[in-house]
């Protein structure tokens, strides 16, 4: 019994250390975003919201924030639609080359970002479509669709294979069944996918930096401010970006986990 208790304390301490390791940089960024000193040193100066004021009065930041918002929302919608179609195809149909189809569908996140970014730049330039807002949307959709597919596929795997036939049996055509059974059943995962892909797109830097040209997103602007000089307003922007992303990810997690635990028709 005593050993058990000791072990639990050790494990709890270890877990706390891991979380500290992961979150300390973000916490530091949060703390220094309210610190009056220009350089991130201890002891801290006084509390200030100047960096937020400065960051949010910068039209370039607003411009980038608006673009990030547009890119991430449009990306989320398109990637989720593609992900849903791919996941449903996998759930419903058996065909030759299905394994290859699945591997190809889930491949993009395994490609190093720099490679993907360069390839995207090269490809989009061929159509004179680089350096536009839509270029970022196209590139991010490629990157995000596999995440959407994975999330929706997980939900579909919990669907009783008789659920659709049951709807047909009660007089619903295939399209009506899609609308009144498949989509309601997968809705939590569709919303989770929208949040998750929006978060990925909102945060993504490497691909955006390559293909965005003058149409910068928030992460690109942060890097540009940083390369110029050391400016605590990046802490302010970073904290704001982190809050947006973590909110989306938490919503996605709650929807995916919450439903996964619920027992379905057995």
């Amino acid at each position: 019994m005593k050993d058990d208790k000791l072990l639990r304390w050790v494990l709890a301490f270890y877990t706390a250390l891991v979380f500290l390791f992961v979150f300390a940089p973000i916490a530091a960024s949060l703390v220094f975003s309210f610190n009056s000193d220009r350089f991130p040193t201890i002891p801290l100066g006084t509390f200030t919201t100047d960096w937020y004021v400065k960051a949010f009065s910068n039209p370039e930041v607003w411009d980038a924030a608006l673009r990030s918002l547009i890119v991430s929302s449009v990306t989320a919608v398109i990637a989720t639609a593609i992900g849903f179609s791919a996941a449903y195809t996998d759930y419903r149909y058996d065909f030759r080359g299905k394994k290859a189809f699945l591997v190809l569908s889930l491949l993009p996140p395994t490609i190093p970002l720099i490679i993907l970014a360069l390839a995207m730049l090269g490809w989009l330039s061929m159509f004179h479509a680089s350096g536009l807002t839509i270029s970022i949307i196209i590139a991010h959709t490629v990157l995000c669709a596999p995440f959407a597919m994975a999330v929706i596929r997980l939900r579909l795997s919990q669907m009783d294979p008789n659920l659709e036939p049951a709807a047909w049996n009660l007089g619903a055509s295939e399209w009506v069944t899609m609308k009144s059974v498949v989509i309601p059943f997968t809705l939590p995962s569709i919303i989770a996918s929208l949040c998750l892909t929006a978060a990925v797109s909102f945060d993504e830097f490497a691909v955006a930096w390559f293909v965005s040209g003058l149409n910068k997103t928030v992460p690109v602007v942060i890097l540009e401010i940083l390369t110029g000089n050391i400016d605590p307003q990046v802490n302010a922007i970073g904290t704001a970006v982190f809050l947006v992303s973590i909110t989306l990810v938490v919503i996605a997690q709650v929807l995916v986990m919450g439903r996964a635990k619920k027992p379905e028709a057995v």
């Binding site: 008789n162 659920l163 049951a166 047909w168 007089g171 619903a172 059974v181 059943f185 619920k262 028709a265």
Partner: peptide, 16 residues
């Protein structure tokens, strides 16, 4: 869906 042959399923297949 055009037949009038409703079925009770082994898994019940209720809409959750």
């Amino acid at each position: 869906h055009e037949r009038d042959t409703p079925m009770v399923w082994q898994s019940l297949a209720l809409f959750p």
